[in-house]
């Protein structure tokens, strides 16, 4: 079973309150942008080849009282599964790493992930010692388990079993410096800080 990506993201967007979000290349950035239109509180880290959760961890470390959601495609995850050890060692209590498990490289025409249908992403996270690991393959399960999965007080990995995107979604319309300033200024406003020149 798998969840329609747009339905899934619509649900997450409705349940989001004050969380800051970091997305990764391709579908997570595109569908999140199309679903939320978030201009300020999401950093669309497109094309980082597996570094979105590390990037998010660097931000989350500095704001321990704010919760962060960090999306990571399964194609990126298999490039850098060792990131789980860093997440475990950092022990962040305020970040949820969300693996988009659509078993393909959705950003590149949906080419299949090698042996993608046999990979146990949640099992990998558990084996790495991540204390809180959840996997959802239906909307009913996600709705029922959301509160437990997304409000843990320790390193958390959530695997979302999703269908391949049904169509092409548009990329967030920002260039790099604009996004830096939008996200940075939003943080400055939220936390009363001066971060950017």
């Amino acid at each position: 079973m798998a969840i329609d990506m747009q339905d899934c993201f619509s649900f997450l967007a409705k349940r989001r309150t004050t969380e800051l979000v970091v997305t990764s290349a391709g579908s997570s950035s595109e569908v999140w942008w199309e679903t939320t239109g978030d201009l300020d509180d999401t950093f669309y880290l497109e094309a980082s080849m597996s570094l979105s959760t590390m990037f998010a961890a660097g931000v989350a470390k500095g704001y321990p009282d704010t919760r962060f959601w960090a999306f990571l495609g399964d194609g990126a995850f298999v490039m850098n599964t060792g990131l789980l050890f860093v997440e475990r060692a950092m022990g962040l209590s305020n970040m949820v790493s969300i693996i988009i498990a659509n078993r393909c490289y959705a950003a590149t025409e949906g080419v299949d992930l090698p042996i993608g249908d046999q990979i146990d992403f949640a099992g990998i996270a558990r084996a790495a010692g991540i204390a809180n690991v959840y996997s959802f393959d239906s909307m009913a399960a996600l709705e029922a388990g959301f509160d437990e999965a997304f409000f843990q007080k320790g390193p958390t990995t959530v695997v979302l079993e999703l269908d391949k995107p049904a169509r092409h979604y548009v990329s967030p319309p920002f260039d790099g410096p604009e996004l830096k300033y939008r996200f940075g200024r939003a943080l400055e406003k939220r936390f009363g800080l001066s971060l950017l020149p």
Partner: peptide
Amino acid sequence: FTHVAVNREESAVGLCSGAFFTGKTG
């Protein structure tokens, strides 16, 4: 210092880049 031992060097790039948004040059 906050020191993070990473699994590969690129992860350091991700972490330090994120830390920039907390007011730090990593």
